[in-house]
Write a protein that binds this DNA or RNA. Structure first.
Length: 587
RNA sequence: GGUCCCAUAGCUCAGCUGGAUAGAGCAACUGAUUUCUAAUCAGUAGGUCUCAGGUUCGAAUCCUGAUGGGAUCACCA
């Protein structure tokens, strides 16, 4: 639509001898109730035209109609210039733009971006919060890829620390040598079970100590279990063979479990980082900062940065005993990632409870003069809440990722069976389809909302399969495929004598796809894609309902509608793919 | 208390680089299937865009303040 903008700039120049830039022309979609496809707001031009908005619109409209063959008509309502673009233009768009192989395919932009997401703890299974994180990260990676970036999907696994020692210790004490094989339990669930057991026993000990007069604080510190866990962590850091052995074994179980869940979620990674390898990093950066005066040392030997001028606090970056804190490690890991890949941008998909941490981290790196720090971005997303409140792994009040996936598949199965459209499918095909639909519903549900917003998830109210949902869009795709399977496409570009409004609207929506990808990539927001694909599916269903494809008036029209259908299916499929959602051929 | 995020229909959400009478879905009600998949389509009803100021020809959108909700301000990660 740039040609309209350019022509408008010229029109203003010709008519009113005023120079404006393309940015001054606000072009928008014409509202449904009016005639036309694009609308120019004429109010901004009245200053130079010295005429009423209506008259200004009429004059510009007249100019455009005379100058551009694509403009077939116009009308002005209350200062809004509504322009009708000729049917020929839209049909050309379909054949010369939308159906071409490189439609909405972005050329490599030469930029490299890392998307870090998932970042699980290896002491418990994944829950709904992780699911949101995983789907978001994966989708953003797909969107950036589509927008022309070279993308590295990274996962920084939190595989060490006191929380893992807790699971290990509880297993040692009460595990009786249980393994995933012996219990037939998924490895991450087995380990998570012992994490919960630890917490239960720990709480018991705290109560006992409180009963003999200790304060809550003292009891938490003095409980034998926590002391044992701390000892175990020290042994781990000292490289004690037995502890390392156990750690490797139990982490192995967890990774196998995570692998299964990731596979079901359909997410993947190009690069894994492990905190057991990175937790000592960052100390050299502390030295660097001390040398350059960005950091300062307190009397006790601890190292700090003063961010009060930036409206933040003083922040510790190294303990007095010269051991690392969280942010030390993150500084080091950021450097490591940059050294590994030299990416232009790096996106951290992490919950919004860490907003402050990342603000500080990025600021520190900038102050240290890391040029790449400007490319760091925290993609912060809201918590997933249950009606009962926050999810807490330790207390077992979580929606488990694996359970949730099974539940979605079961619901998909029930809905599908009730409709009875795929009775000829093999068992394997059915299982596959239930998975596709169930995950489509779940993924769409989680991705259509703005990442920033917190999400309320009611496990008792199942995710919908009708209306503004993943299955609605999947259904539209299957429906198109069903029609295409019954027809032969000649591949000859035919122009119908008349273009119905539903056909034109569908083409208009299709042409927007590249712009939508760009927007989604700029905002790191899969919701942009999700809502667009929904609009497209709706536009198709409306067209489908109003017009027969196979029984079209004549072969020209039929071929045109078939091409329109092929294009719609393709864009739906590509859009959904950016959300990590599969579209079935039948459902 | 400081800082950050959020607030739109009964519910879940779009719209936010300022533009027309604020849009979808769910739930409720009505209608469409001898015709390409009705997981669909068409319609009815549902709104003080939290509130109060400000900027503007024009504000759900930008600014200020308030209210409500959430997060965070650890020598935990």
């Amino acid at each position: 639509m740039n040609f309209i903008i350019d022509a408008t700039v010229k029109a203003v120049k010709q008519l009113y001898q005023a120079d404006i830039t393309p940015a001054d022309v606000s072009l928008q979609e014409t509202r449904k109730e009016f005639e036309g496809q694009v609308t120019i707001v004429t109010f901004p031009f009245t200053k130079v035209s010295r005429k009423s908005p209506e008259q200004t619109g009429a004059e510009i409209g007249e100019y455009l109609k005379n100058q551009l063959k694509e403009v077939s008509a116009f009308n002005v309502i209350k200062g809004f210039l509504n322009i009708s673009i000729s049917n020929t233009y839209w049909v050309e768009q379909l054949y010369q733009v939308i159906t071409t192989d490189d439609f909405a395919i972005f050329k490599p932009n030469g930029k490299k971006v890392m998307v870090e997401y998932s970042s699980p703890n290896t002491n418990k299974p994944l829950h709904l919060g992780h699911v949101r994180n995983n789907l978001l990260g994966y989708s953003v990676a797909k969107i950036l890829d589509a927008a022309g970036y070279e993308v590295i999907k990274a996962n920084l696994v939190n595989d060490r620390g006191i929380h893992i020692c807790k699971s290990m210790l509880a297993w040692q004490k009460w595990g009786n040598g249980e393994t995933p094989e012996s219990t037939k339990e998924k490895g991450d669930h087995l380990v998570g079970k012992y994490y919960v057991i630890f917490d239960k026993e720990y709480k018991k000990q705290i109560e006992e100590l409180k009963a003999i007069g200790q304060t809550e604080e003292e009891a938490k510190k003095n409980a034998p279990l926590i002391k044992e866990a701390q000892e175990m962590l020290l042994k781990w850091e000292a490289g004690d063979d037995a502890v390392i052995d156990l750690w490797q074994t139990m982490n192995g179980w967890v990774y196998e479990g995570f692998g299964e869940t990731y596979k079901k979620l359909g997410v993947a990674f190009d690069k894994f980082y492990y905190e057991s390898n990175t937790y000592l990093l960052g100390k050299d950066i502390v030295e660097e900062g001390l040398a350059s005066g960005v950091f300062f040392k307190k009397d006790d030997g601890s190292v700090w940065i003063d961010l009060t001028e930036d409206g933040l606090d003083q922040k510790l970056v190294l303990r007095a005993d010269s051991t690392s804190v969280y942010i030390t490690q993150d500084m080091g890991t950021a450097q490591l990632k940059y050294d590994d890949f030299g990416m232009d941008e790096s996106i951290y998909v992490v919950g919004n409870e860490q907003d402050y941490h990342f603000k500080v981290l990025f600021l520190i790196l900038q102050k240290l003069g890391k040029t790449w720090a400007r490319g760091l971005f925290h993609l912060s997303y809201g918590m997933v809440d249950l009606p009962s409140g926050k999810m807490k792994s330790r207390e077992g009040t979580v929606v488990d990722a694996d359970d949730l996936i099974v539940e979605m598949e079961t619901t998909a199965k029930q809905v599908t069976e009730a409709l009875g459209k795929i009775n000829d499918f093999s068992e394997e095909e059915k299982t596959q389809l239930y998975h596709t639909i169930g995950m489509g519903a779940l993924k769409y549900f989680l991705l259509k909302v703005d990442p920033k917003k917190r999400l309320l998830f009611d496990p008792n109210e199942s995710v919908d399969f009708q209306g503004h949902t993943g299955p609605f869009i999947q259904y539209t795709h299957a429906r198109i495929k069903s029609v295409l399977n019954r027809a032969t496409i000649t591949g000859v570009d035919t122009e119908p004598s008349e273009l119905a409004p539903e056909e034109r609207d569908l083409i208009v929506t299709l042409t927007q796809f590249p712009e939508i990808i760009t927007q989604a990539a700029i905002a790191y927001n899969p919701g942009t894609i999700a809502n667009y694909v929904y609009e497209l599916a709706k536009a198709y269903n409306k067209f489908y309902h109003e017009h027969s494809i196979l029984q079209a008036e004549d072969e020209l029209v039929k071929q045109f509608r078939l091409q329109l259908s092929v294009a719609s299916a393709k864009v739906i499929s590509r859009g959904m793919n950016m959300l990590g959602i599969e579209v079935p051929e039948r459902m």
